[in-house]
């Protein structure tokens, strides 16, 4: 797979996190550019009782539209989609979203791996994946799939993570291009949105 071209390096950013990542996202949202030219998908492990109020909470931190992902909806640039509790969220090749209530993956539903892997497949590598704090191995294989497909990968610096296990799992697979501190994540996403920036995978 060819590296991302200068004209269109990244068409989607997927972010996954588990324990300790909620606060990271809340800190990442305010500095995000309000005209991101790609959609952002966030997959967070949470209790299934924690309903759609999470998207309302996120919406208070950014002027970008934040919404819970709905099945069959088209991804739109500048919109932040949150995987609903207790469903896997899949990205289709026609850039719509699918929900799936199949078995948990890595004890998780939504599973970060499922979203990352289907997104890598759908975008043919023209995407970036960021893995945050967590106490679970979910997401590492997904990041590997993004990496193999030619996408850009990043993980939260385990030293800054409340639960370093998850980013460490990805680092152990040697599939992480960028290691980011909490305050660098929004900057990183904004840079991806700036089409003049050339990112390198190695």
């Amino acid at each position: 797979m060819a590296k991302n071209s200068l004209a269109s390096p990244v068409d989607l950013v997927v972010i996954g996190g588990s324990a300790g990542s909620l606060d990271v996202i809340l800190r990442m949202l305010p500095p995000l550019s309000h005209d991101l030219r790609f959609p952002v998908i966030i997959v967070l492990h949470r209790k299934s009782t924690f309903d759609s109020s999470l998207s309302d909470l996120f919406a208070t931190r950014t002027s970008l539209t934040v919404k819970e992902a709905e099945e069959k909806e088209y991804l739109r640039p500048g919109v932040i989609y949150l995987a609903p509790a207790d469903y896997h969220l899949l990205v289709e090749k026609n850039l719509t979203l699918s929900l799936d209530y199949s078995e948990k993956v890595n004890y998780s539903r939504p599973s970060i791996d499922v979203t990352f892997q289907t997104a890598a497949d759908a975008l043919e590598g023209n995407l970036a994946g960021i893995l945050l704090s967590g106490a679970n191995a979910d997401g590492a294989l997904g990041l590997k799939t993004i990496h193999s497909a030619g996408g850009i990968t990043a993980a939260q610096n385990p030293g800054s993570a409340e639960m370093p296990y998850m980013p460490n799992q990805a680092l152990a697979l040697s599939v992480v291009d960028y290691i980011l501190n909490i305050d660098e994540i929004a900057y990183f996403v904004n840079k991806l949105s700036d089409s003049k920036t050339k990112f390198h995978s190695e």
């Binding site: 899949l90 990205v91 289709e92 090749k93 699918s98 799936d100 199949s102 499922v114 892997q117 289907t118 497949d121 759908a122």
Partner: peptide
């Protein structure tokens, strides 16, 4: 069927 889902299955 939704393509991504069936492919994954």
């Amino acid at each position: 069927y939704s393509k991504a889902s069936i492919k994954r299955r």
